[in-house]
Design a protein around this nucleic acid. Structure first.
Lengths: 218, 218
DNA sequence: AAAATAATTTAACTCTCAGTAAAATTATTT
DNA sequence: AAATAATTTTACTGAGAGTTAAATTATTTT
């Protein structure tokens, strides 16, 4: 019995390893060829297996992308929630610091893993493709909502604590997230394939300053 | 000879009419089913012809989308250039008015033709799909650049004329366009298929106010 | 006005890719 | 060692973008 359970564990480990191998391969191929350009056969070849094996682990190509993007957005939401916790326990001394940290969460996540750029774009691409069907898209929308809620809570608390001017919280949240998202998009688009646009960070830094000027109570 | 040229004209008119019929059909089908969902056969059926006829008028599906989006972005660039001309001839009395008009160009264009929402998204979708190949994407990038240049010129003049604070012009331009773009994207994405998000306009209005606070010299 | 020619449109393909079914292989249990 | 279960692969299907060559329609020439 003890032996049996250890074998079960090994099997599960193997399964996870295989899943991970597929994800790594998918990441590599998709970054090189983008979503539409990366065929399931390409990904399988990169992973040293064949296509149907992938379908053993992921129901559709979309699910594969979601599995790739999910942890990154989740991390983002967690980091935002951490700020919220800090804010609640009175660890912030200024509104400026709050804006700075929120913006930092965004561009840190992106800078740490530049792949996020492309993956985010890919996720966008999917969101448009089909009607609202597809669990993959619903999953991504939910993750997006998580981030939005976290941002909303931060802004709301910052206003009630007197760090921010008495702004509309919903609009503020939308604007911060939207501006970040849009800038990332257009920079990525202008810069094309290779690497990160050198303008991304300056523009975001600039946006941060702009928001501080407009938002923070002096 | 006079007769011949009038016949030639009629032929060209017919050709234009057919081109237009195809574009109308493509617009209708793509708005209903989005880019990937709309097949060339669908579009042909909607136009009352068959697929190869479309290929007589458009080289690829991408070219078809570009033909759809092109006039709208072009109009946007023209409207921005009009502001620039006004600014040059001293028709503006305040920086606030400039920001207002620029933002207005954006959401007016979008509000006048809600289809723009989806088409813009579709264009985005294409930009990501392939490597830099494809003349379609180059064309769209050029159009985007036109808008950027117009915005840049406006900001630059506004600074030198003392309407705006001494901000970084490049960053300002990127930020304005990026925030507009990103907000439009996320609203569209959250709202899904049917119509325009009721939040879009308020969020953009809010962004405008925010920018005025941060940008305009008092 | 009829035949010849040119342009347009279409039926019937090809090719690529996501996804699947069933056979073959490998691992596990009896 | 045989039987059974799980995994992987070979060989498909189906859908959609784009093409080819034949059929149709319009235009020009005689």
């Amino acid at each position: 019995m003890q032996r049996k359970s250890s074998i079960t564990k090994r099997i599960q480990r193997e399964k996870l390893r295989r899943t991970d191998e597929i994800l790594q391969a998918a990441l590599k191929v998709m970054l090189a060829k983008s979503y539409t350009g990366a065929t399931m056969d390409d990904i399988a070849a990169e992973a040293g297996i064949t296509k149907p094996t992938i379908y053993q682990y992921f129901k559709t190509k979309d699910d594969l992308v979601v599995a790739l993007v999910e942890p990154i957005i989740l991390t983002l939401a967690e980091k935002l929630n951490a700020i919220k916790t800090d804010l609640d326990s009175g660890n912030y001394k200024s509104g400026k610091q709050i804006v700075h940290d929120v913006y930092n969460v965004y561009y840190d996540t992106f800078e740490t893993d530049p792949n996020l750029f492309k993956l985010f774009n890919i996720f966008m691409q999917m969101g448009i493709k089909k009607g609202q069907n597809s669990t993959a898209i619903k999953k991504i929308r939910d993750l997006g909502k998580k981030c939005f809620v976290a941002g909303h809570t931060i802004a709301s608390t910052a206003v009630s604590k007197g760090f921010f001017k008495d702004v509309d919280v919903h609009n503020t949240t939308e604007f911060v997230w939207g501006s970040f998202w849009g800038i990332a998009q257009i920079e990525q688009n202008k810069w094309g394939e290779e690497g990160i646009s050198p303008y991304l960070k300056p523009v975001l830094k600039y946006g941060e300053k702009l928001l501080i000027t407009a938002l923070v109570k002096k």
